[in-house]
Simulated assay, not measured.
Amino acid sequence: MNSGDRQALAAFLRHRREQLQPSDVGLVAGARRRAPGLRRDEVAVLAAISTDHYERIEQARGARPSAEVLGAIARALRLTLDERDHVHRLAGQAPPARHRSQGYADAGLMCVLDALAPHVPALITDDVSTVVAQNRLNVALLGPLAGERGLRRSFVYRWFTDPALRSRYAPEQHEQLGREYVADLRVTSGARPDDPDVRALVDALTAESAEFRRTWARQEVLPLRATRKVLHHPEVGRLELQCDVVVSPPSGQSLVLFRPQPGTGTAERLQLLGVVGVQDLAPAAGA
C-alpha cells in the first residue's frame, strides 16, 4: 500500500463537486449560489458524514479517510467504479473488490434513483442486500436503512432480526418473502463461498434466527428479480406494490423499484406519503 497523494485527492474531489449541480443529485438549488457546483455541506449530507470531516478531506488535512467514508463520498459525487477506485488509490488504499460496496452506489443506478425520487420509492443494494442508497420516498416507506453500520446494513439480516421493519409487511407474506431473500443470498454464497463478508452474514443469521436456519436448510437457490409486496404504513395505510429488481452488470448492484399496483389506490397513497412522510427527512442516500 502506498502513502497516497492527499493533495491530488483533494483536487479531484473539489473538481468533481464543482461539476455537479443540485438537480444532478436530487437536491433543490434554492437561493442564488456564490460558487459553481455543490457546496461542501451538501456533499457531506449526501455522504452521511459531518461537514467538518468532508472539509478536512477536501483540504488534505487530518487523518486519512477510511474506505467506508471514501465509498460514501464516491456515492455522493456520483463517481463511476473506476473513479471510486482512483479515489482509494489517491488516499493510499487498495481499491475494494468490485462486489464490495463499502458505502459506494453504482453511478448509473444513482441517476435513475434520483429521477424516480418524486414518485417511486427505490433503493440500491449490493449482492448481500447491503442497502447503499435510498431515495427520500423509500426512506419514508421503510425508514432509514442506508445509514446503518455493520450487519444491520443488510436488508436480509434486518428481515430476520428486526421486528419493527418486518411489521410493515403483511404477515401472510412473511414466510414467502423470507424464502425469497434466503434463496437470493444462497446465490451469492455459492458464487463466493470463501468471501468473509458473505460467511459472516450467514453465520450471524444462523446463530440469531431459528427461522433463518429452517429456511437456509431448504437449499433453495433463486436470484431475486421481481416480487409483489403488501405493506401497512403507519401514516398512509395499505400499499400494494410490485418490486422489480434491475441489476447493473459493472457493479453487480441492484436497483429495487416499488411500483404501485394499478387499481389499488396505492399510487394516491404514495403521493400522500411524498407529502407527509418526507417533511422531516434529510436527503438520504433501502427491499
Rank of each mutant, 00 (worst) to 15 (best):
A74W: 01
R192M: 05
G71L: 01
A122Y: 10
P193C: 15
A74M: 08
E58L: 06
N138Y: 01
P95I: 05
S167L: 02
Y181R: 06
R56F: 13
T80Q: 04
G108D: 13
G178S: 02
V156Y: 13
Y104H: 14
Y104M: 04
A133R: 07
V87P: 00
E172Q: 10
M110Y: 00
P95L: 10
Y181C: 09
R192E: 14
P171R: 09
V112H: 11
A183R: 00
L151S: 05
L90F: 03
D162S: 00
A63I: 01
A107K: 12
V132T: 08
F160H: 00
I57A: 00
R192D: 01
A115M: 09
G62Y: 13
A122L: 13
V139D: 12
V87C: 08
E55H: 04
A60N: 04
L116S: 10
G62E: 14
H174P: 01
Q176S: 10
H88L: 08
S129I: 02
C111D: 12
G147F: 06
D194P: 04
L70Q: 07
P118S: 07
P96H: 15
A94D: 15
A74Q: 02
N138K: 05
R89V: 15
G147H: 15
G178P: 08
F160V: 08
A117R: 03
Y157R: 11
P95Q: 09
A107S: 11
L116M: 14
Y104G: 03
A115H: 02
H99N: 07
L79C: 09
V131L: 10
Y104E: 03
R136H: 05
A115Q: 12
D82I: 06
R166S: 03
A97E: 15
D114T: 07
Q134K: 01
P171K: 02
N135Q: 14
H99W: 14
V112W: 15
A72S: 10
N135T: 04
V131T: 13
P96C: 07
A191Y: 12
G178L: 07
R179W: 02
G108T: 07
V187M: 03
D85I: 01
R158C: 06
S101F: 00
A94Y: 00
S66E: 12
R75A: 11
R136T: 11
T188N: 12
D82T: 11
A183G: 01
R152Q: 05
T130V: 14
V112D: 10
G108Y: 02
A107M: 07
E180Y: 06
V120M: 11
A122E: 14
T130E: 11
P118F: 04
A91I: 00
Q93N: 04
V187A: 07
D106A: 03
V139M: 09
S101N: 08
P96E: 14
R100C: 10
Y54Q: 02
D162N: 15
R78S: 13
L185W: 13
A74K: 05
S129H: 13
R56C: 03
